Computed example of a mutant assay.
Amino acid sequence: MPEHVARIVPLAILTMLRRGEILGLRDRDLDLDAGAVSVFSQCQEGERVATKTRSSRRIVDVGPVAVRLIGEQQDARVDSPEGFLFPSRTGGPFDADNFMARIFTPAARAAGIPELTFHDLRHTGASLMIAAGCHVKVIAEQMGHSDGGGLVLKRYGHLCKGARRQAAEALETHLFGAAGASSVG
């Protein structure tokens, strides 16, 4: 990918933002000291519009790697009077279809994964959060889902193999310390 947008893939995975949400991010949406990204609008057809649902309007917490990548992106981007994090070459908002056709799809082909979609990055982030043991409700909130985690479980539940055993062992460790360290009586 060109340098001025090269960080969009890792940031899309780390934030689980939708394509229009990440393309619509502006400096005023970022609180790097707090490690937070405010998502209240998105780009559609090159215009900034409100997110489609109330639950899509959210604060996404990010870790130190994402904060560093955001700072690097701010330094690498082309001048953007409106402060877009990922501006087009003219400094305005990207049209999502244009971004896909001119930048993302050719980069995916060059990487040997021509079937990759931008939404796959969101799925990757959610899958990795599940693998890291994150609570499903938290994942749903980060993604902007309003169902408390039902969709996350439905879509990614197959990734939770061994989760019941892990939960049982975590309960015992919490109650008794080291595994098998306590007797009942």
Results as ranks from 00 to 15, higher is better:
M1F: 06
E3D: 13
H4A: 07
V5H: 08
A6L: 04
I8Y: 06
V9C: 09
P10E: 07
I13K: 04
L14I: 01
R19F: 04
E21Q: 08
E21C: 10
L23E: 05
L25V: 01
R26T: 15
D27Q: 12
L30T: 00
L32Q: 10
D33I: 04
D33T: 10
A34N: 12
G35D: 09
V37M: 09
S38V: 04
F40N: 14
S41Y: 02
C43R: 14
C43E: 08
T51L: 07
T53A: 08
R54Y: 02
S55P: 01
R58P: 01
R58W: 01
V60M: 11
V60Y: 12
G63E: 14
P64K: 14
V65A: 13
A66V: 00
L69A: 05
Q74F: 00
Q74T: 00
A76Q: 10
V78M: 06
V78L: 11
S80G: 06
P81V: 06
E82P: 00
F84A: 05
R89F: 07
T90R: 15
G91W: 06
G92F: 05
D97I: 01
R102T: 07
I103R: 14
F104P: 02
A107C: 11
A107W: 11
A108M: 14
R109W: 03
A110V: 06
D120M: 09
D120C: 12
L121M: 05
R122W: 03
H123Y: 03
A126V: 01
S127M: 06
I130A: 06
A131G: 12
A131P: 03
G133L: 09
C134T: 07
H135N: 15
H135F: 01
H135M: 02
V136R: 14
A140G: 08
G144M: 09
H145F: 08
S146G: 15
S146W: 02
G150K: 12
G150F: 03
L151M: 15
L151T: 15
L153K: 07
R155M: 10
Y156K: 08
H158M: 04
H158V: 00
C160Y: 09
G162S: 05
G162V: 04
A163R: 11
R164G: 00
Q166V: 09
Q166S: 13
Q166H: 06
Q166L: 14
A167P: 03
H174G: 09
L175T: 01
L175K: 01
L175C: 05
G177N: 08
G177D: 07
A178G: 03
A179E: 09
G180R: 13
G180Q: 08
S183Q: 12
S183P: 00
V184Q: 13
G185A: 15
G185P: 00
